[in-house]
């Protein structure tokens, strides 16, 4: 067989495999939209669940997810950005830096359920926060740290070295240089990374299983120390633990969660494209 012909066949096979990877994504999204769209209405989104979750809405789960995600990112963002600043601006090429980098890689690889155990051990039991919004948010914050550090570091490293030199040459201190000549220009990249990390965290279930999530709690959390309902966990229990659950509202819950996550991803892409187009240097 000549080379041209085998190339044609090979490319055909490659295309087929690529489609086999990508098309199921569309299938998942389509099926959830198709089955779930009928469940979604104002009442479903804004009322409490009732009748053992078989009827009513998913309002507390939506609110719980938003609280949880915002709180966790508020905790993780400052630490993550400062860690990225340390790595990109201060760290020398030494053993400590190598250990930090390895730790970040590992933190990113720890299974989500192990984070759940850790959160249970540290926040719920040792620090006596109990199963609550705060414990869950802290657990998720540590979990999203690697993503925020990595993307922020990437964003910082794209700011030209010359900005730092100019600022330093004017007698401006190192921190002020970072604060005023580097950080503002890394902000779009940091924002993109943060939004992406939020979207990932919003869909996590295992880390909050034993740290924050309530099985059934038809009211809104009143404080940081309240248990909360959360969308992904809610979806998990209504699809596996509740007999005779109307499939319409299961799909509806899945759709709401999916929309929430994809919307954040979309926002991240918009932010990235916007700043890329308006890049000033």
């Amino acid at each position: 067989m000549d080379a041209k012909k085998s190339q044609k066949i090979a490319f055909g096979v490659l295309l087929a495999t690529t489609l086999a990877v990508v098309l199921p994504v569309l299938f998942i999204i389509m099926i959830i939209i198709k089955e779930g769209i009928t469940a979604i209405n104002w009442r479903f989104l804004t009322t409490m669940p009732s009748n053992g979750m078989r009827s009513g809405g998913i309002f507390p789960a939506i609110v719980g997810t938003i609280y949880l995600v915002l709180l966790s990112v508020a905790i993780a963002l400052p630490v993550g950005v400062m860690a990225a600043i340390y790595l990109n601006e201060y760290a020398k090429d030494n053993i400590l830096t190598r250990i930090i980098k390895l730790s970040i890689v590992n933190l990113a690889g720890v299974p989500s359920v192990v984070y759940g155990l850790f959160g249970l051990g540290l926040f719920v039991i040792f620090l006596k926060f109990g199963v609550c919004l705060l414990s869950g948010a802290l657990t998720l914050a540590i979990m999203e740290l690697p993503v925020i550090i990595t993307t922020s570091k990437e964003a910082l490293s794209t700011v030209p070295l010359s900005f730092r030199e100019v600022s330093l040459s004017l007698g401006v201190s190192r921190w002020q240089t970072i604060r005023y000549a580097v950080l503002p220009h890394a902000l779009p990249g940091i924002m993109t990374g943060t939004i992406l990390s939020i979207s990932r965290i919003a869909g996590e279930t295992a880390p909050i299983l034993f740290t924050a999530a309530a099985f059934y709690l038809p009211r809104l959390p009143g404080s940081l120390f309240d248990q909360i309902m959360v969308l992904p966990y809610h979806l998990f229990i209504i699809s596996t633990q509740i007999p005779n659950m109307p499939s319409k509202s299961t799909y509806g819950t899945a759709l709401v969660l999916l929309i929430l996550v994809l919307m954040m991803n979309f926002t991240a892409i918009v932010v990235r494209t916007y700043f890329r187009m308006n890049k000033k240097w």
Partner: peptide, 12 residues
């Protein structure tokens, strides 16, 4: 070094 660099400016 910060005080020094204030006194010794640079054009790149």
């Amino acid at each position: 070094p910060e005080l020094l660099r204030k006194r010794v400016g640079m054009v790149f």
